[in-house]
Design a protein around this nucleic acid. Structure first.
Lengths: 340, 340
DNA sequence: CTGTTAGCGCTTTCAC
DNA sequence: GTGAAAGCGCTAACAG
């Protein structure tokens, strides 16, 4: 039903190779011939068959982005741009869910390399936490670019954010407002950002001569529920001999939402009785009252740059392959000077 | 480098056809031969080349989901399940951004059909609002399943939510609490749900003998900013001769977030001074204080079912092709009895 | 500048 | 039960 290169050649009165040249914008075709071929293409409504091309070129023209389902939401805003990018480069961009260390995920990855034969991969956290991915891809010599990887010393190309600096800035912001007892909501261990943000918090504290108090550091898994629970623990005075914190710095916006919820549950007014600061600057943070002070983390840019980097790698370029993007504080209504 | 079916045949001492039979689980192979072939496959680490298979089968084994970038966020929660589904069926599932009526989008769609040759498409709102998609796909006889289409009378298969019923239930909920002046935040016209929700609101009102008041209906585009602005208009008494509404029913959760923000800005306590109800039940609605009362709209199920339906269609089954899923009210903290 | 020839790796008749 | 041969639609040498 749909026409092939042969049909075009027949109609244009030339060989299929000439048609191929026209399709692929190769030189060595006279303008007249080219025009004739193009006319034939138009009248026949011809379009090259991608599968055939991929077979003979031994190239899938497809990239795979490994994503942990929890990462979909922050990433959704960029998806569109990335997909456009793929379109322009004539690549299919597929998303594959990946749970580190899960056998099912691993099998699918093997399959993706082996049978589907993707030309390159991008991992988003915490997919890279599974050393399996990097190892396997290295074995098969398939290019990989990581977004915010756990391990920056592997020599592999990556795009990351400056979590240390961002957390330091956020903590400094709270300190400058006059807070001395600043709690920190920690994240999971399989994220690089968890550790870096904790360290930034700690460094800012110590730069100010305030001792690091482990009691003020609570696990939150970077989720709403985690933040909710952690905040309840921190704000329930009965559990401590100590006075509660006057500010909570959540390592993620989601956890900050949880803390915000808890504070409202307890009737604590934000920011007058409690300051809350997040990390990530999800779109929602500007929409939640009183506006969440947070650190803008260029998630979108990170993913986009990672894909761009992969394309360059695929083209044989040797670009700067380890990129750290700066973070920046976004002050909104949820932080202010402490009560008394 | 990677081995082909020929290598396997050579090692197993049989023809390539026999290997093909084993790979595809076809009959007419003795258990002994089968075992021999499987051993050869394992030692060679053979995997069939998908591109070759697709070429000879004249089938892309790929589906395309047309998505309006604004729809990514609600959809992100399901993405994972859909992608899994594709994996199990041995299909690639690609997402393509689509802006109705945009020439660029249309060109890409033509390309997707013509060159990329997807086996089927799913549209999410408002991509279907562009009659172009349905027409083009009909012309090329490519199966299409629509999620919540603007036009349900086209005869095309679709999966939708019962927006009329959902809006009716939400409005009835507010009426039962004692509200008489209930504002409604409308959505864009290229969404079926906009109209249906408005009608449901209106029907509930009239069932109660309360006249429909156009002054209480404001456009909101179903966005945060839209909801914010609409709520400001509604709650600024100076603009009306009328008293402000005691409840706002937003046609989308996003718009409800905007209304919530405005009410906090104005110092109106929710729900004691103003009730707010949304529509959609985004994950965030349970996380925003005081918990958004909303209508649970099975977005995720809708998309998933649409993809399932497409697979059945592709397999030649003739399933029930027009599905309307029920909506259900989720009462949380943002609604209560009116002030006096 | 143009065409001929030979595959890419697989499935599919159709004999045996 | 098994295999030989043909060909999917394209690109890539290599002649002319």
């Amino acid at each position: 039903m749909s026409s092939t290169i042969k049909d075009v050649a027949r109609l244009a009165g030339c060989s299929i190779k000439t048609v191929s040249r026209v399709i692929n914008n190769e030189p060595h075709v006279t303008p007249q011939t080219r025009a004739r071929v193009q006319a034939a293409i138009r009248t026949l409504g011809y379009a090259p068959n991608i599968a055939a091309r991929r077979l003979v070129q031994r190239k899938a023209s497809s990239l795979c982005i490994l994503m942990y389902p929890g990462f979909f939401q922050p990433a959704s805003a960029v998806l569109s741009r990335i997909l456009d990018l793929g379109y322009e480069e004539n690549y299919d961009i597929l998303i594959q869910p990946y749970y580190p260390t899960f056998p099912v995920s691993r099998n699918r990855l093997v399959n993706a390399i082996y049978e589907r034969r993707f030309d390159g991969f991008v991992t988003t956290p915490p997919c890279d936490a599974d050393g399996f991915v990097a190892d396997l891809l290295a074995t098969y010599k398939v290019p990989l670019v990581q977004v915010d990887p756990l391990d920056r010393s592997s020599g592999l190309p990556y795009v990351a954010g400056d979590d240390f600096q961002g957390a330091q800035a956020a903590t400094a912001h709270l300190l400058e407002l006059g807070h001395c007892r600043i709690a920190f909501l920690m994240g999971p261990r399989n994220l690089r950002s968890s550790g870096d943000r904790l360290n930034g918090y700690r460094a800012a504290l110590e730069a100010r001569g305030i001792p690091y108090d482990p009691e003020l550091v609570q696990p939150s898994e970077f989720t709403f529920d985690g933040g909710l629970t952690a905040a309840r623990l921190l704000l329930a005075p009965s559990l401590h001999d100590l006075q509660p914190p006057t500010a909570i710095f959540a390592g993620s916006d989601e956890a900050a939402y949880g803390a915000l919820y808890t504070s409202q549950e307890l009737g604590l007014s934000v920011p007058s009785q409690l300051s809350i600061c997040g990390y990530g600057d999800l779109p929602f943070s500007a929409h939640i009252w009183p506006g969440l002070t947070t650190v803008h983390q260029p998630d979108e840019e990170m993913l986009e740059q990672a894909v761009r980097l992969l394309f360059e790698l695929l083209k044989g370029a040797v670009p700067a392959t380890q990129v750290v993007l700066p973070a920046r504080l976004v002050a909104r209504g949820s932080t202010g000077a402490p009560a008394e």
